[in-house]
Design a protein around this nucleic acid. Structure first.
Length: 513
RNA sequence: GGCGGCGUAGCUCAAACGGUUAGAGCACGCGGCUCAUAUCCGCGGAGUUGUAGGUUCGAGUCCUACCGCCGCCA
């Protein structure tokens, strides 16, 4: 039985179009998914993303634009889909929390928890911040009862609501985190989660009276209320499955990898496990927590107008460039900083000079000296100088895989580039362009070029999860089909195979000004 | 206030259990090559590893205090 894996991004809150932060999470998740598709086979990987469309922030955003809420979220969901298509995000399911199937799923889970007595009704009076969609205690608020996040006054309201018994499950969740060291990773976030689980939890309010806010999923046991907060969104990870099929759910969860930002750690490390336990389901495999993308050293925020649009960069620099930058530059789990200057530096140094130029010079020599034909078996009949490049490309894929599986995407790319370095050094060490002038050295030139072309071929294979469009271009230049692409070094390109003449994959960008 | 994290070359990052002159890449300077996108290769400078103490034969790595940045909780 082949190993399976289930991979999710956060279900993105859809009060605005996607920005670089969303793109960043989607890239990491997509890379992970693509990597595992290659490792486990396409049908053993499920990649879920989607949009969280209920709630009063969405409702207000819609009203501000003079739209009905559904019309508004339709627009946003489409914007995410379009963006993800352009960014090559290879999801299998795009779940919208307004999908009828999803709504039924949530209602089924609500009813189950209610029947079990884990959801109960009580009156609640408190200070409520509309922006946060939550109540605050007075201690938490700033002087004047201002919300610490929004700096706006919290309103005192009284209302009856439904609550989820969280505290009851705290110790069980804590034990799971303790006994599963990599449950939440990187470790820094595990420590934070343990911190949260170390003290009593208040029960979680999971409903809103329709009288105040009706843009949500109606509670199956009380038609005066809706849910839209976390009880809604989490289930989107699973709602492509039937809610009643506990066996299927119990199969998926233990292989489920959730990718989230550090801002929603508590909800995923505490609330979500509690909901799963209440539903009698196993917990997910890993919570993979990333930091925030800053923009020019500052937190992205609407008020300061520094919300970079990923599609803009995709348009300006071509496919994969933003993606490469974010994956190479940011250490997963830590905050990253995005600047266009830095992106251009990376583009020129890594993409144009290393990858692009190497491709160009190798294909150029192949065309010039061998009429684009592979005329030797790569990796065979090696001399001492050949060992370095052969070993580099033989060992790189495994190292890349280890790094991807531990979420060190930047180091995975670094490992690929080390192999590219070995190829460039190999050209200098063997000087095929000099040997080509001597008739009797032609067989040696053929072997050198075969080794290099095979290196590019393995590069295309390794690069696919990170830079799918570039990998496809490279595979096309090398005329390598899927099976050839996947082969280990030395077993891909065969004598007689023909490659295309070079093109500039990444034309160098001249520094502005 | 409590808990936790981070602070290593100009920049981005590495350095299993503490152990030989703290490493890469980028940027910068010099030299070489010409197949290539003025690309590539080689060499080089630069760090009292936030500060001050302590433990140890030996500490970036452990302990204490402090400074700075940040996060979580209350």
């Amino acid at each position: 039985m082949a190993e399976r894996i289930h991979i999710t991004t956060a279900i993105f809150y859809s009060n605005g179009p996607p920005h670089v932060g969303h793109a960043s999470e989607a890239f990491a998740t997509d890379t992970f998914a693509r990597y595992f598709r290659r490792k486990l086979g396409r049908k053993n990987v499920t990649f879920v993303t989607g949009t969280d469309e209920h709630g009063d922030k969405n409702l207000r955003a819609a009203t501000a634009q003079g739209l009905a809420p559904k019309a508004f979220v339709d627009r946003i969901a489409q914007a995410f889909r379009d963006a993800f298509a352009t960014l090559n995000i290879s999801y299998d399911f795009f779940v919208r929390t307004t999908d009828p199937v999803h709504e039924k799923f949530v209602q089924s889970m609500l009813q189950g928890a209610y029947d079990k007595g884990e959801i109960y009704y009580r009156d609640y009076q408190g200070l409520y911040c509309v922006g946060c969609e939550r109540f605050y205690t007075e201690k938490e608020l700033l002087p004047g009862n201002l919300c610490p996040a929004h700096n706006t006054p919290a309103e005192l309201i009284t209302e009856g609501n439904y609550f989820l018994r969280l505290e009851k499950y705290r110790e069980q969740i804590r034990q799971h985190v303790l006994s599963t060291p990599d449950f939440i990773r990187p470790e820094r976030y595990r420590n934070e989660a343990l911190n949260m689980l170390g003290e009593p939890l208040e029960d979680l309010c999971i409903s809103r009276p329709k009288a105040r806010m009706d843009w949500g999923i109606e509670l199956p046991f009380d038609s005066n209320y809706v849910t839209y907060v976390w009880y809604d969104a989490f289930w989107a990870y699973l709602s492509e499955l039937p809610a009643t099929d506990k066996a299927a759910l119990a199969e998926v969860l233990p292989v489920s990898e959730h990718f989230i930002g550090k801002d929603i750690l508590k909800t995923h490390a505490v609330y979500w496990p509690a909901m799963l336990l209440i539903a009698g389901l196993p917990l997910y495999r890993h919570l993979n927590v990333h930091g925030w993308m800053n923009f020019r050293g500052e937190r992205m925020s609407k008020s300061s107008g520094n919300i970079p649009d990923p599609l803009e960069y995709e348009k300006t620099y071509g496919p994969d460039v933003l993606r490469y930058f974010l994956m190479r530059e940011v250490v997963y789990g830590l905050d990253g900083d995005f600047t266009e200057e830095r992106l251009i530096e990376r583009y020129n140094a890594d993409l144009a000079n290393d990858l692009g130029n190497l491709t160009s010079r190798v294909l150029s020599m192949a065309a010039r000296y061998c009429e684009g034909e592979v005329r030797a078996a790569p990796g065979a009949a090696r001399e001492d100088v050949d060992s370095a490049i052969i070993q580099a490309f033989e060992s790189a894929p495994a190292r890349v895989g280890e790094f991807v599986e531990e979420l060190s995407f930047n180091r995975a790319l670094e490992a690929i580039w080390q192999a590219l370095d070995a190829a460039n050094k190999y050209i200098v060490a063997t000087e095929p362009f000099k040997l080509a002038k001597k008739e009797d050295a032609r067989p040696r030139v053929a072997r050198i070029l075969a080794n290099l072309l095979e290196g590019l071929r393995v590069t295309a294979d390794m690069l696919e999860p990170f830079m799918p469009a570039t990998a496809a271009k490279l595979a096309d230049l090398l005329q390598a089909d899927e099976a050839t692409l996947r082969a280990p070094y030395g077993t891909g390109l065969k004598p007689g195979h023909r490659v295309k003449p070079p093109v500039a994959l990444f034309p160098r960008i001249e520094k502005p000004k």
